[in-house]
């Protein structure tokens, strides 16, 4: 976002400063759950008193909760699985969507409009709603309880295709013509012209895709059985719930912290890019 543009929006004029005060108050409320998670994760006394809910940190913070969380569940393995799932999905998505986006942006072929609308259906009919038949398909393909089974329904992406098609359309067609004269083939065009020139859209899509699949729960819960194949969300959920007993809130807080920390760190580092990517994605 450009600062020049911002200047056009004098803050006080759009929202009275009372509104701004309200937003500050809400922002405080917004981070309270995180605050509690942090404080509770480092709190030594798990059950002693009713002060478990206190947001004031203890004088003697402890790592005991983290140790117990780390030992109770194989978080390292869950991380690897989640990374593999997010990475695998993204890689395949980039291939399928660039090909499709190029076709929709630059090629003319029979049924193009119909196919485009067929693609768009997936914007709404997200795989999760179809979880029952999808689970059956995954099992029939022999992908039950595999990471590939978790990934497969997401390999085609209407959203990504749509986003990339728009980006491709802004690229001057003269570039392509010049390359064609030099003897380039379609894959050269996509790899060396379209993709490099669509980096912002690609990045925006990548961030959204990774965030979505990092956070996904229900589908991997259905597909995965073996603990070795569990992603973070499923690992965390099985870890936070027992059948007949009490829960160790400090350990749960520590486990939750372990799960979300990488994304929070990533966000802290790439904050601006993150937010801009999300913003860019919003522009249809």
């Amino acid at each position: 976002m450009s600062r020049g543009r911002d200047a056009a929006l004098p803050q006080g004029e759009i929202t009275p400063w009372i509104g701004f005060g309200l937003v500050v108050a809400l922002a405080l409320a917004w981070c309270t759950p995180f605050l509690w998670m942090l404080v509770a994760a480092f709190r030594p006394d798990r059950f002693g008193s009713s002060a478990m809910a206190s947001l004031i940190p203890d004088y003697a913070p402890t790592l005991a909760n983290f140790v117990e969380a780390w030992e109770s569940a194989d978080f390292a393995r869950y991380y690897l699985n989640t990374i593999a799932i997010c990475g695998g999905i993204l890689l395949v998505q980039i291939v399928t969507m660039s090909l499709a986006a190029y076709a929709f942006a630059r090629l003319k072929f029979p049924g193009r409009n119909l196919l485009f609308h067929l693609f768009l259906i997936q914007l709404m009919l997200v795989p999760i709603v179809l979880l029952v038949p999808n689970l059956r398909t995954v099992a029939q393909l022999g992908l039950y309880d595999t990471l590939a089974g978790v990934m497969a329904p997401y390999f085609a992406t209407a959203f990504g295709t749509f986003l990339m098609r728009q980006a491709f359309q802004t690229i001057p067609v003269e570039l392509e013509e010049a390359a064609l004269i030099d003897g380039a083939r379609w894959w050269d065009l996509i790899r060396h012209i379209y993709l490099p020139l669509s980096k912002p859209a690609l990045l925006a899509f990548s961030i959204i895709s990774v965030t979505a699949h990092w956070n996904e729960f229900l589908w991997p819960l259905m597909v995965i059985n073996s603990p070795d194949n569990r992603p973070l969300t499923v690992g965390l959920a099985t870890f936070t719930r027992g059948a007949e007993g009490a829960q160790a809130w400090g350990v749960i807080a520590a486990g939750t912290f372990l799960v979300i920390a990488p994304l929070l760190i990533g966000f802290a580092v790439f904050q601006r890019r993150f937010i801009n990517s999300f913003m860019a994605s919003g522009l249809k």
Binding site: T96, I121, P127, A152, F155, A156
Partner: peptide
Amino acid sequence: GLVLLGPSLVFLAAFT
């Protein structure tokens, strides 16, 4: 055009 849509269509067909 149709070939390039192929990979996406295969997955859309199977999972949508």
